[in-house]
Design a protein around this nucleic acid. Structure first.
Length: 504
RNA sequence: GGCCCUGUAGCUCAAUUGGCAGAGCAGUUGACUCUUAAUCAAUUGGUUGUAGGUUCGAGUCCUACCAGGGUCACCA
């Protein structure tokens, strides 16, 4: 065995051997559940008086109360808990001794057959006639006791809260922390609601390559990998954008994809190296149409997941009901920082202007990056209520179409909730010659940082030359939306297996 | 990557100025035929993240390393 049992585990192992000696199978092949825990209780509640309700329930033992010749257990399945009432003269001496000798123990999975009844203190329980082991637990789970009050609220005594252990052993976290289990149910409902919304709007769900010979669609460093037989360097995608828009050339009017993006960058409370993204593209709408879809979609998802469109996030009440505030990036930055970036149209001038407020400002950034810096430093933290920031500088938005009022801005918005950037969208550029020039401009801008430059994608340009309908596109970090809907401050709390370093 | 904080029993946490490493829960043994955080009595359990150093003496002070969290940088 590679496993070195600790003292508690050794005791369990000894119990397992004793069970085998008594002829008890530790891991039998089959179970025969007739009712979930909650169904068993409901069956009793809806049954006619004096009609016995016979059930077979299964689950993990979460509490044992041994009382001489009678014992109580709570078993838990995904539906909830039900109490087992075990009497020596109902279940027989042989089975009772397994309980009495603690050979069947907390954390084990068992199957119980019996009749539903109500104990003297009123709890609906299974009076057990047959009790069998389904799976012996050899390592005790962290001890968390729960008290269920009359109004259904659960008070926990003892906790399993060390974040590192919880993430490294998510199975144990889920097994004992009911609130954690609930977060991932909400995550699932979030995904389902997004799909339902977009399907109802006539979108087609598609899948595009994760392994890409040319990455693009965002400014980020990629993960690089290699195909041995093809002798080909491949990148894990950093966005879906360019592959999805090719599909509009192909004749679909509205497509979306939900999947994983990979970015080889820092890890933080809102960044994981792999994260879930939703992108959609719809022909014949512009970014105003996308804004309309965005606020309706987020409100719909919130309604499906939380039952309303007003949520509480980290003690702040946030109203997701459309319409949301819309303000240009220029006005927002002017309001919060006092700097009008149009007064400083070169990188040097803008850097000088910011330096009066921030002497430590990193020198040599491009004009677009400086504008972005002003946004994230002065504006973003203030955007608690959902807000669309619209019209971005052209040189940080290579896939967005120009506004009609000047040459500096493009029709792009990002939207923010709870001080977090949630998503990004544009009126998509569909002019292949303009697009080619943007690629070339990006190359120049990022000359000393080509990791992040968007590589020129010839095939994408060829697709565009066939003719791409005017369209609006959208991308959103799904993990961040789940954070919002589950009131979690860290992205790791909404990822079942967040990225951690190897344990040495 | 820089800086700050944290790491003690299976879990959650104590440990005075550097002076015998402790508690609750769980575990073990015993009692109990309606308990529910069951209760009562007794009891086991430690390479204090790792490796060095200072000291008569280190959980505590110093150095390096490992891991986690926070923050800045990077980045949506």
């Amino acid at each position: 065995m590679t496993w070195q049992p600790n003292k508690l585990e050794q005791e369990r192992l000894d119990k397992a051997r004793e069970l085998q000696k008594r002829g008890v199978e530790l891991y039998p092949r089959r179970a025969a559940r007739t009712h979930t825990a909650v169904q068993a209780i409901e069956a009793y509640q809806t049954a006619e008086a004096n009609t016995p309700v016979q059930v077979t329930v299964t689950g993990r033992i979460r509490r044992v109360n041994l009382k001489g010749k009678v014992s109580f257990m709570h078993i838990e399945d995904e539906s909830g808990r039900v109490q087992l009432f075990i009497r020596i003269n109902t279940v027989g001496e042989e089975t009772y001794s397994l309980v009495k000798d603690k050979l069947i123990d907390v954390d084990d999975f068992v199957q119980a057959t019996g009749t539903m009844m109500q104990t003297k203190t009123g709890e609906i329980s299974v009076e057990v006639q047959e009790l069998t082991l389904l799976s012996k637990s050899l390592s005790p789970l962290p001890v968390v006791k729960q008290q269920v009050l009359d109004d259904g609220t659960i008070i926990e005594y003892g906790e399993f809260s060390d974040v590192e252990s919880r993430y490294r052993q998510r199975y144990a976290d889920l097994a004992v922390n009911l609130t954690v289990r609930e977060i991932f149910r909400k995550r699932s409902r979030t995904l389902k609601a997004i799909r339902q919304f977009l399907d109802d709007e006539g979108f087609l769900e598609v899948e595009t390559p994760i392994l890409q010979p040319i990455y693009g669609g965002a400014a980020a460093r990629p993960f690089t990998t290699y195909h041995n037989q093809l002798d080909q360097t491949l990148f894990l995608r950093i966005s879906f954008e360019l592959y999805l828009k090719r599909l509009l050339v192909g004749g679909y009017d509205a497509v979306y994809e939900i999947g994983r993006d990979f970015r080889n960058e820092g890890v933080s409370f809102k960044h994981n190296p792999e994260f879930t993204q939703i992108e959609f593209y719809k022909a014949y709408i512009d970014y105003n149409g996308v804004m309309d879809l965005t606020e309706r979609m987020v409100a719909f998802v919130a309604q499906q997941v939380t039952g309303g469109t007003t949520i509480t996030y980290q003690n702040q009440v946030i109203d997701l009901t459309p319409p949301w505030k819309r303000i240009t990036l220029r006005d927002a930055i002017k309001q919060e920082s006092g700097i009008d970036y149009m007064d400083h149209p070169t990188a040097e001038a803008l850097e000088t202007a910011i330096r009066t407020k921030e002497p430590q400002l990193k020198p040599g950034q491009t004009w677009g990056k400086l504008v972005d810096h002003l946004l994230s430093k002065y504006v973003e933290p203030k955007l608690i209520q959902p807000t669309f920031i619209i019209d971005y500088p052209r040189d940080i938005s290579p896939f967005a179409k120009r506004v009609d009022y000047d040459d500096f801005h493009v029709e792009r918005f990002e939207f923010f909730i709870a001080g977090m950037e949630m998503g990004n969208a544009f009126t998509e550029l569909n002019d292949p010659l303009d697009q080619e020039q943007r690629f070339l401009d990006m190359k120049k801008l990022y000359a000393d940082d080509d990791d992040e430059a968007t590589p020129l994608d010839e095939d994408y340009l060829r697709a565009m030359r066939y003719g791409m309908p005017p369209n609006g596109g959208f991308g959103m970090g799904v993990d961040r939306l789940v954070m919002l809907l589950t009131d979690q401050r860290s992205i790791r709390e909404v990822l079942l297996y967040p990225h951690l370093r190897d344990q040495k």
